[in-house]
Simulated scan of single mutants.
Amino acid sequence: MDRQQVVDLGEFGEAFRRDPHPLYARLRERGPVHRIRMTGAEEGYESWLVVGYEEARAALADPRLAKDGSKIGATALDEQLIGKYLLAADPPQHTRLRGLVTRAFTMRRVERLRPRIQQITDHLLDEMLPHGRADLIESLAYPLPLTVICELLGVPEVDRAEFRRISTGVVAPADADSEQEAVARLGEYLTELIEDKRCAGPSGDLLSDLIRTTAEDGDRLSADELRGMAFLLLVAGHETTVNLIGNAVLALLTHPGQLAALRADTSLLDGTVEETLRWEGPVENATFRYAAEPLEIGGTAIAQGEHVLIGLTAADRDTARYAEPDTFDIRRDTRGHLAFGHGIHYCLGAPLARLEGRVAIGTLLDRVPGLALDGEPGEWLPGLLMRGVRTLPVRW
């Protein structure tokens, strides 16, 4: 397979959707950068895909790879319908937006959520345990981060079921039409929510604080920027954590030696979360970047205006970075993994995702000593953005 040859990911069908790692490994053997034809909602669309670790890490921090599509005359669907947000902005705009949101979304605020995260987890397990079996995604992995981020941002409880349906359509759409419908509906909902909060006055939630956050020079987020920030925090703030929890439990239940080691030594919990992020992270590929000028990545010439997809999953299994990368090892030194990105676009919600993952996994294993798989996991999510299963049947 010549690395300049276009690799049509659609040709690999369901096998690639279930397990993309063998193909990524074959591509890495032939070079760190490849031309691909997309699958999922972007089916037929061509892009460059970076699969090597060093090349991916460098590309994530390369200012020549823009996130703002307007630099090459393109505007992403979500940006058209939602507005400008962090993942679609470059400095100095990105610097300004991130500075404003970090004034309200602080580490201290995240840490204050720990008791509430524990309380929600315990409540969900109280409801789940009497039944003897459950879909772990439906019973724990989905409702925990959904409840946390909705409470954090002040989404009314009555709206959360609808929000779940919409957000899944945004991050794992079946096709382009359903994606457009979901993004448009979410944009409408957020506009209404922000206006309600603006009229209601301060209420202590993050979205209310963002409405009123002011920089030292008097700068504050516009209405469109607020909608974009709420969009990013709501969608990225829970969909990724769903997959982190689900992927971690699936990995442990299919690696009984690792599960036994963690049960015997709970200090390995942090290592379990980090190894899950490296081995089967919740985000398969970073969102698009655009070559603002001609450049080379790993010896491959990228023309100005071309689109670049950086493979987080592929890079984190590069043998040049990690020994025996296909082995799930919770004692591994995972430092440097790219599951949350790298550079100025490093995930703003990484501390919250890690906290929720540790609480959910640790509490589950503590309270359910006989946890086991209860059949095959459901289908893996479509597309090239998210990596996780729709259902995870377990028993105890």
Rank of each mutant, 00 (worst) to 15 (best):
T334K: 09
G357W: 01
R3G: 00
G388N: 05
L207Y: 01
R220I: 01
G305E: 04
S208R: 06
L309G: 11
I149W: 06
T363E: 03
L206G: 00
D217G: 15
R108C: 07
N243M: 08
P145T: 07
T327I: 13
L381A: 10
E111W: 05
D68C: 05
A260M: 08
E79G: 11
T240L: 11
D374V: 02
N247Y: 06
R114D: 06
L152H: 03
T147Q: 09
G154V: 02
V308F: 10
R317C: 04
G370P: 04
D126N: 11
G40T: 11
L348W: 04
Y53L: 11
D68V: 07
P173R: 03
H345K: 12
R395G: 03
E181R: 15
A66D: 00
E225H: 07
S203Y: 00
G341M: 07
A292N: 03
A248M: 06
T266E: 15
R263E: 12
T334G: 09
T391R: 13
I330S: 07
R96K: 14
L232E: 03
R18V: 11
R321K: 13
A74L: 15
G375T: 11
D265S: 11
E14Y: 01
H21L: 12
H307P: 12
L49S: 09
M1R: 08
G99R: 08
R358A: 14
I302S: 09
H94Q: 01
L77G: 12
D265G: 13
I120Y: 02
G169N: 06
E138V: 13
A66K: 03
F288Q: 08
A25H: 10
D316M: 10
H131A: 15
I330V: 13
E46T: 15
L65H: 01
L124Y: 04
E216W: 01
Y322I: 12
G305N: 05
P202Q: 02
R367H: 03
G299I: 11
A350P: 03
A172E: 00
P294N: 02
G362I: 05
D219K: 10
M386I: 07
R18P: 13
L136V: 10
E54N: 14
A176F: 14
C347M: 07
I310T: 08
Q80F: 08
P393Y: 04
P156T: 09
R263G: 05
D90W: 10
R108V: 14
T300I: 10
G246I: 09
D90A: 06
M107Y: 00
D374P: 04
T95Y: 06
S178Y: 02
M128P: 09
D8G: 12
Q118S: 05
E293M: 08
Y85S: 13
G305R: 01
L309S: 13
A223H: 13
W396P: 10
T241R: 03
D2I: 12
R116C: 02
L81Y: 06
N285R: 11
T363H: 01
A353Q: 02
D126G: 15
D205Q: 04
R367D: 08
G357K: 10
V368H: 00
P382H: 07
R358S: 14
P22I: 07
R390I: 08
E151D: 15
V6A: 10
A323I: 02
L262W: 00
I330G: 04
D122H: 15
P202K: 06
G73E: 02
L60Y: 09
L210E: 01
L232D: 01
E192T: 12
R35D: 06
E296Y: 09
D326A: 14
T39M: 13
R227N: 06
L348V: 14
